[in-house]
């Protein structure tokens, strides 16, 4: 803590001595973080809060190192990621082709879209108790609920993307003598792809939220389970280690998806085609 306060003082002095060395924004952001850490550390140290209510950062780091050493954190991360990735990819492999199919055929779209708008409104966690009855505690209910949570955003976005393809583009290919497959391959897929990616990112957000919820309720391993266990043992540092890990994993995957989205949706210069094929 003394080190943090020292850094604060040094940075302030540096800023006072020359405005150019430390930018205003950088200074304020750094100060906000430092104040936060000093607050968390100091309130526990001087007994303002009980130590079960707020864990000091040093204790959290200490606990994280301990778990890493024992391999406990790695096991939980592995089972969380396994669950999430399997649920997410099941949803993707179901939702994208189905969305494409129902988007292409007008009649199918007119009947499916209103019903799926209805079904979408069930919050995924509400399916959890039912999934537990059917599948029991463990991997299956969590994977099922994550699949449901990711399915509708991807499905609806794909359908919307396919529906919004401009008719004139399709007609151009048909005029050139292309058949139905050519239209699908050269027009519908490339122009629907950005919309699909948007759906994938929304689905990712909801799936990640649902994952944690289902692990808190229905799992016997994973980060959500670890947090809940920490809560039950009044072991606040563990709760914070779990939250920080979830936060870091979520941020990493979101950054990855953002890059993928950029890569997929960038147009080739001049060619008017997409890079990906």
């Amino acid at each position: 803590m003394a080190a943090l306060v020292a850094v604060m003082i040094v940075v302030t002095v540096l800023r006072a001595s020359s405005q150019d060395l430390v930018g205003a924004k950088f200074y304020r952001v750094l100060m906000a973080w430092l104040i936060f850490f000093v607050f968390a550390e100091g309130t526990i140290y001087y007994g303002v809060f009980k130590s079960i209510l707020l864990a000091p950062p040093t204790a959290v780091i200490h606990r994280a190192m301990f778990y890493l050493e024992k391999g406990y954190l790695q096991i939980n991360i592995a089972s969380t990621m396994f669950r999430f990735i399997s649920g997410f990819f099941i949803a993707l492999t179901l939702a994208a082709p189905l969305g494409l199919l129902f988007g292409v055929y007008d009649k199918a779209y007119e009947w499916i879209a209103p019903a799926s708008n209805f079904l979408r409104m069930t919050p995924p966690p509400a399916i959890l108790p039912f999934a537990i009855i059917v599948f029991g505690i463990g991997e299956a209910p969590a994977v099922f609920v994550i699949t449901v949570g990711c399915f509708f955003p991807i499905f609806l976005a794909t359908m919307r993307g396919v529906r919004e393809v401009e008719t004139i583009h399709k007609e151009v290919v048909q005029t050139m003598g292309g058949d139905q497959m050519d239209v699908l391959k050269h027009v519908i897929l490339p122009s629907a792809l950005p919309s699909v990616m948007t759906g994938v990112r929304i689905g990712f957000g909801i799936g990640w939220l649902v994952l944690v919820a289902s692990e808190i309720v229905a799992a016997d391993s994973g980060l959500g389970f670890m947090i809940q266990g920490g809560r039950m043992r009044l072991d606040t540092p563990t709760v914070f280690v779990g939250m920080a890990t979830i936060c870091i994993l979520g941020l990493t995957m979101d950054m990855f998806l953002k890059q993928l989205e950029k890569y997929v949706t960038v147009r080739k210069k001049g060619g008017g085609e997409y890079i990906y094929y």
């Binding site: 944690v212 808190i216 809560r231 979520g250």
Partner: peptide, 14 residues
């Protein structure tokens, strides 16, 4: 960036 359900155990503690 922390999904709301992950705050739940913490919120119960508080």
């Amino acid at each position: 960036v922390v999904p709301p359900p992950a705050w739940l155990p913490f919120a119960i503690l508080w």
